[in-house]
Design a protein around this nucleic acid. Structure first.
Length: 726
DNA sequence: CTAGTTTGCCTTTTT
DNA sequence: GGCAAACTAG
């Protein structure tokens, strides 16, 4: 591939984009509307810095919102400037901080092999601390306290400073838990997500030499999705860029959808107040959507107060009107979407990958999965049941974390009796009391089990056995590669055996997930040879759901509106357009959160290139009961001239296939209607023979052998199976 | 100590 | 309707 010179790089850009890409000295704000080519500007800007300005690639910092965006940007810059792209710091805030902290964390009392706690670990630890303080978890719910701690951290209020926020008994408790929580983190040599930012800031603020080092290192700083930065990120950027002021931020206040995570729109709205001499460039030309979609989107967002006035325009045609279908029920809504996908594929030549279904909450995906499965339309879900949050995956990762960092008591507690090895709550309680009284870590307590009072002989023996297991594996950490370590852990811990022995479908599924984890480790090892287990764990800790998304796959994509940011699809369905669903019930009481919902709607709409569908349902089952929701208020925000309302009773629409449902009910009590040996027909796999029928977690499960396809495990609830006679 | 059952909780979005 | 803590029985 030929590298590009300055002239040819500039040729890719329109005048505004060029202005933004070429402004190198001093603060720059790029207000980039949806689909205005912001990534292009950013990549070209960085390419120019390297290519024509001769800036050392290692001194450019580019912050993206997700790892996926980072990889993509690196790829695009690589195409422009070649392998030098490899040296640029392109990453999320969290990855960049983690990289810095691997070098600097020792100054804060951490060791460099610290582990990163996800929110499940976080919750466990908060709960632990609450219980350790002899508080009632009913009166002080860990989730709530964690939320308050999180918010404080977003606003850079540390555990000590929280004292100023204490106004009553409850905040008093929060303060105490916050302090205990931070102490535990330090003792466990662990950081949560927010700590990655806060500790980086702390290191920079406490050590002038360190600050100086990174200020010199990063001569040019670029931040994407600036509207979604929180006060801590703002501070960090400011610290690093204050001196040379070569700071370029890109964003769109209309797409700010993370205020619940602490993001503060003022960062982008008041950029010029921080940098009065800032250059501001607006990108308003949209290269993605039809005029109709843009007009509607402009209108939806125009009603938001205090925004920066922008008006997207395009040279594209009007295109199709936005189609709106308010179905009688949730199943009809899903059936409509599926039928429409089929129709567009047949009549308009779209492929599976051209379609996306967006919803407000992950829980809404079910009916769509069901109907797509039944119609044999391939689909994939981004998010939802998250791979790295599944029990078995987390269990095994906890083992690995423990090998890297034995101080990690959260992981230790997780695996000490998993699989069951006779170390129960009582034993654990004794260990804990001992650890606390001696001021040693839980792991040290396990290792000195002989001295722990009140322990029975068998408990001691089991603890010793466990300690030997972990010690043995720890010794291998230096010797074995990550894939080998995973294997050894799975085998020697007995985790694999325990699952194999169960011989249930559930265990089967878990084994498959572990196989998947194994693939991930193997892949990591081949792309990062020489990197150790710690590097793998770090990568895993910082993945976002969207990072796992692969657009090349030929499948319909289902995801939340939040995950949709930054993507585009020829055909988009935004489903669940009902008051209480979208906008979400929890956002109804404050005008600010309602505005955020509206921005979220805007984000969803502007993902569509050619066709946009909005659907809702008059009634659906929510939380297990029947709910009746009115049409979403956002529908009335769309100009009627852009909207085509479909009749809610579609002529010729098939009633849903209720066969599977009926079968499940029939199969439930005692005598299954479907038995081993029955011949069945499946829409996708064809004819097959039932091997077994059993009750699993998600309902009745059927194992079927399809000749030529192999054995398939199907959830009767979702499967479209017909029983064949004879 | 474990396994099985009941109760009682919570249901937004995620680096 | 789903999940985890809490309780109960072996």
């Amino acid at each position: 591939m030929a590298l590009r010179n300055e002239k040819s790089i500039l040729a890719d850009l329109n005048p505004e984009q060029r202005e933004a890409a070429c402004y190198f000295d001093g603060p720059l704000l790029i207000l980039a509307g949806a689909g205005s080519g912001k990534t292009r500007v950013l990549t070209h800007r960085v390419a120019l810095l390297v290519q024509s300005r001769g800036v050392d690639p290692g001194r450019i910092l580019a912050i993206t919102f997700t790892n996926k965006a980072a990889e993509e940007m690196r790829g695009r810059i690589h195409r422009l400037v070649g392998p030098r792209a490899g040296a640029i710091w392109i990453s999320t805030f969290h990855s960049a901080c983690s990289r810095i902290l691997r070098r600097e964390a020792e100054r804060l009392g951490y060791r460099r092999n610290f582990v990163i706690y996800d929110d499940d670990d976080q919750l466990r630890l908060v709960g632990r601390v609450i219980r350790d303080l002899d508080l009632d978890v009913k009166r002080y719910p860990p989730r709530m306290i964690r939320a308050l701690i999180e918010r404080a951290k977003n606003e850079m209020v540390d555990a000590d400073a929280y004292r100023d926020r204490v106004v009553d008994d409850f905040t008093e408790v929060v303060h105490a838990v916050y302090q205990g929580y931070q102490r535990q983190l330090l003792r466990n040599n662990a950081m949560d997500f927010d700590d990655l930012l806060l500790n980086t800031i702390a290191v920079l603020e406490l050590y002038p030499a360190v600050l100086e080092h990174y200020r010199r290192l990063f001569s040019h700083i670029n931040v994407d999705e600036y509207q979604d930065t929180n006060p801590a990120q703002y501070r960090l950027v400011k610290l690093l860029s204050e001196e040379h002021r070569n700071l370029c931020v890109v964003g769109d206040d209309d797409q700010g959808i993370y205020s619940w995570r602490g993001a503060d729109l003022r960062n982008i709205l008041e950029f010029e107040r921080d940098y009065p001499d800032a250059r501001v460039v607006r990108l308003e030309r949209n290269y993605r959507s039809t005029r109709t979609i843009l007009e509607a989107a402009n209108y939806v967002v125009s009603r938001i107060s205090g925004r920066r006035e922008k008006r997207l325009w395009t040279e594209r045609e009007d295109g199709e009107p936005i189609r709106y279908y308010f179905a009688p029920g949730g199943e009809d809504e899903a059936a409509f979407v599926s039928l429409e996908i089929n129709r567009l594929m047949k009549e308009e030549g779209y492929g599976h990958r051209d379609f996306a279904i967006f919803y407000r909450t992950n829980a809404q995906s079910r009916p769509f999965e069901e109907v797509l499965l039944r119609h044999a339309i391939p689909y994939k879900i981004v998010g939802g049941f998250k791979f790295y949050e599944r029990k078995e995956v987390k269990d095994v990762l906890a083992y690995l974390k423990l090998l890297v960092n034995p101080e990690d008591s959260v992981s230790l507690r997780r695996v000490i009796n998993e699989p069951k090895r006779g170390i129960g709550d009582t034993t654990l309680a004794h260990l804990e009391a001992f650890a606390r009284s001696r001021g040693i870590s839980l792991w040290e307590a396990v290792n000195t089990a002989g001295e722990v009072p009140n322990l029975g002989g068998s408990a001691r023996a089991r603890l010793e056995e466990f300690a030997t297991l972990i010690d043995g594996l720890t010794e291998e950490v230096e010797r074995l590669s990550p894939p080998e370590l995973l294997r050894a852990t799975l085998e020697r811990s007995g985790y694999l055996d325990a699952l194999r022995r169960q011989e249930t479908f559930e265990a089967e599924g878990r084994l498959e997930n572990l196989e998947e984890l194994n693939r991930a480790v193997v892949e990591f090892h081949s792309t990062h040879p020489g990197e150790g287990l710690d590097a793998f764990l770090e990568k895993v800790s910082l993945v976002a759901e969207i990072d796992l998304y692969d657009e090349e796959e030929g499948a319909v994509t289902l995801m939340t509106l939040h995950n949709a940011k930054g993507l585009e699809f020829p055909v988009v369905f935004i489903v669940g357009m009902e008051d209480g669903v979208f906008p979400h019930l929890r956002c109804m009481d404050s005008p600010e959160s309602m505005e955020e919902e509206r921005r979220l709607f805007y984000v969803g709409m502007t993902r569509a290139k050619d066709r946009l569908y909005l659907t809702g349902a008059a009634t659906r089952s929510q939380y297990g009961e029947r709910k009746y929701n009115p049409e979403s208020r956002f529908i009335s925000d769309i100009p009627e001239s852009c909207l085509f309302r479909l009749p809610s009773r579609l002529p010729g629409a098939p009633s849903l296939d209720v066969r599977a449902k009926a079968w499940e009910e029939e199969a439930d009590p005692g005598s299954p209607a479907l038995r081993a040996g029955d011949r069945v027909f499946h829409d996708v796999f064809g004819e097959g023979m039932v091997l077994s029928v059993s009750r699993g977690r998600g309902g009745m499960e059927v194992a079927v052998n399809f000749p030529g396809v192999g054995e398939k495990l199907l959830l009767l609830k979702y499967a479209s199976l017909r029983k064949l006679d004879g």
